[in-house]
Computed example of a mutant assay.
Amino acid sequence: MPELIHDEAVVNGVRLHYVEAGDGPLVVLLHGFPEFWYSWRDQIPALADAGYHVVAPDLRGYNASEKPRGVGAYRLDELVGDVVGLIDQFDAEEAHVVGHDWGGAIAWEVASRHPDRVERLAILNAPHPDRFRDVLRTPEQLRRSWYMFFFQLPWLPELFLSARDYTTIEEIFRDGTENPDAFGESEVQRYVEAAAQPGALTGAINYYRALFRERVPQELRTVVSGSRDDSDVSVPTLLIWGEEDTALGIELTEGLERWVPDIRVERLPDASHWVQNDEPERVNELLVEFFED
């Protein structure tokens, strides 16, 4: 790794810790669940060496960032505001925005709501919200997404994930990858330490709780009125998808041109949900090529 600068900034009313490296056009890397900035350990040096100013925050509720109380603090409006505020923090008009998992969900929203702030969008194993809505109706995806419904319960998900010294967190990474070298013991322990920060598990799970409280009423209104909020993405988009994702089916990569006309889909057949850690060199190549195209 190049020398990383650890810093923090108050954006959108919340204190975010981030790491940065390199100089040049801004690239913002948004991690997923249950991760933190360290999930981009293989991308930060590659992008910095390619001539980019790379910023990887701990999202609100995670690791060293502030963990506001209450489910409402994790609504999409707030999460999107954090990213836009972070771009402002570095005096940039726009940025390349890259998101994995929940970071990808946020990135989709940033690009649809603020296309003028996103130069290019790269998504790693995170479904477009409208496509996910359609596929979630199928029995197979409902089976895969059981945990999202479990996370709606109070306190029990936190107890489950922290039991036996956070063994479940360890298993999420150890057992969920296609590359045995993706997560060594030291890497896994860093994720455990991040998850064990006071309030971190509740913050992370509140993303799912807030989503259900926000989106389920919205979907019911869609059924009644026949209309939905505009979620089209006009910026150039790259979707990188590990096909061995146990939580998200490959069908989520299909038919996206309806909402994202300028999209390129790259499927990696030997990668899991943790695609940037399973095949870091290929992901790095795809990102640099896409940004420089």
Rank of each mutant, 00 (worst) to 15 (best):
D175T: 11
D77L: 04
L124W: 04
Q152F: 01
V288A: 03
R221L: 10
L156Q: 09
H273S: 11
E78R: 11
Y208C: 08
V28K: 12
V98K: 12
R144Y: 12
E8K: 13
D181V: 06
I106P: 02
V83Q: 03
D88Y: 07
L59Y: 07
P280H: 04
A204N: 11
F36G: 02
G226P: 07
S39C: 12
R137Y: 04
E109A: 15
N206H: 11
L156A: 13
Q189C: 07
Q218K: 14
L268Q: 14
F36T: 09
Q197C: 13
V55A: 11
D88K: 02
T237M: 04
E178S: 15
V71S: 05
V14C: 06
V224C: 03
L124C: 10
E35H: 08
E279H: 15
L256W: 10
L79G: 00
G249S: 15
Y208M: 07
A126R: 00
E78W: 03
L86Q: 00
F183W: 15
E78G: 05
L30T: 02
R41E: 11
Y62M: 06
L239K: 14
V216A: 10
N284Q: 10
E257Q: 13
A46S: 12
A271C: 13
V98L: 06
E292M: 08
W274R: 00
D229E: 11
E279S: 13
G51I: 03
V118A: 07
Y74V: 04
E140D: 15
P2Y: 07
E8L: 06
G32E: 10
P180I: 14
D175F: 05
A182L: 13
F291N: 00
G32S: 10
E170Y: 05
